Computed example of a mutant assay.
Amino acid sequence: MDAACTAADLAEATAQAVPQHPDSEILLSFPSLNVQLAARVPADIGDERGRFSDARDLKAHAGLASDPSHC
């Protein structure tokens, strides 16, 4: 029961925090990306805008790069 309450509290806190993120409009514009999933994007890749020089770097970080030499 405690875990369920904690999960519900976390979901509510996430729902309140994501819209306040500077990139929330972009994150929430992706099809099928709800507030809970949108919170994972900066958590997984970081939210430092200069970290990736271009989209290829981000794709390589995510393991989606088609050019293996760019990984």
Rank of each mutant, 00 (worst) to 15 (best):
M1L: 14
M1W: 13
D2S: 15
D2H: 12
D2K: 13
A3E: 15
A3W: 04
A4W: 00
A4Y: 00
A4N: 11
C5T: 13
C5F: 04
T6C: 14
A7M: 10
A7W: 05
A7I: 09
A8L: 13
D9L: 12
D9M: 12
L10Q: 10
A11E: 13
A11K: 11
E12P: 08
T14N: 12
T14E: 07
A15H: 11
Q16V: 10
A17N: 11
A17R: 09
A17L: 13
V18Y: 04
V18P: 00
V18G: 00
V18A: 01
P19T: 06
P19N: 02
Q20C: 07
H21N: 03
H21C: 00
P22D: 01
P22C: 03
D23L: 08
D23C: 15
D23I: 00
D23E: 15
S24R: 04
S24Y: 00
E25H: 11
I26Y: 03
I26K: 05
I26R: 01
L27R: 01
L28D: 06
F30C: 07
F30R: 11
P31S: 10
P31D: 11
S32I: 02
S32P: 05
L33N: 05
L33Y: 06
N34T: 04
N34M: 03
V35T: 10
V35D: 03
Q36V: 03
L37Q: 11
A38E: 01
R40L: 12
R40G: 10
V41R: 02
P42R: 05
P42L: 02
D44P: 01
D44F: 15
D44V: 14
I45P: 02
I45C: 14
G46L: 07
D47R: 03
D47I: 04
D47E: 15
D47F: 02
E48K: 06
E48I: 02
E48F: 04
R49Y: 05
G50S: 14
R51L: 10
R51F: 04
R56V: 09
K59I: 01
K59R: 15
K59D: 10
A60H: 06
A60V: 05
A60N: 05
A60E: 02
A60L: 06
H61S: 10
H61D: 08
H61R: 12
H61W: 00
A62V: 03
G63I: 04
G63H: 07
G63C: 09
L64E: 06
L64V: 07
L64Q: 09
L64K: 09
D67R: 08
S69T: 13
S69E: 11
H70T: 12
C71F: 09
